[in-house]
Design a protein around this nucleic acid. Sequence first.
DNA 1: ATGGTTGGGGTCCAA
Length: 262
Amino acid sequence: MRIVTWNINSIRIRVDMIREFVEKHNPDILCLQETKVEDDSFPHKEMQQMGFGYRVVRGEKSYNGVAILSKIPITEADRLVFVNEQSRHKTVVTESGIEIHNFYVPAGGDIPCPDTNPKFKHKLDYVDHAAEWFRRYRSKEDKIILLGDLNIAPGKKDVWSHRQLLDIVSHTYMEKFHFHKLMKSLEFSDIVREQSEIEDKIFSWWSYRNKDWKKSNKGRRLDHILASPGIRNQCKKHKIYTEFRDYKRPSDHAPVLLEMSL
DNA sequence: ATGGTTGGGGTCCAA
């Protein structure tokens, strides 16, 4: 089974790019963030034509929006959603009993201070709330994949410059603290990092604001795929499709794939 | 230290 997370930054203008990705790399389940579309305008027909017969979506005008698109049967949707404000969380359970949580964590604004910046406080609270929810209501034996745009680069090698980003939202101490609390809630494994060399810099996002993203390579790893202990041994390999950051009118995020055995 | 770009909706906000 091939499962992909991708912050698409508006689904409507990137249908062709999604189609090319699906034809080339054949994901069974595609989890999207920042669809930026209300539910009645979601491109259901196009996604159906790509083979996604199961679609669980929640969007709003202009901002946010998440979707889980699947070629394989979904037996339940959103029973396990812990909070669904602002279209940031969708869950499904597949016919093989895998529980998928697709998250779009708040970006948090520019100022890394919860007292003066409500967006940053919202981000910290959101991750904290998620960690508490998993700790209380789910167990390590459950087969859980937690993925999405978590908007936090947790490790020194998840940013282009650890020192220069210590006070930049996405890499601050407080965000990393909450990220680790989420990791510890069910002893999640960070699959992409575990399957990589510890000294390798790994990015999934590059700002639009760099003239030549590839040359400057000032990236961050904001998109994650975490696996609970109950499913960890079914995780086979991962891939980050950086070439899609080079697509004509790309998203600023690249798709991240996890291949699993059933 | 600053500003750089993109998308959506509407001439600004969020990322």
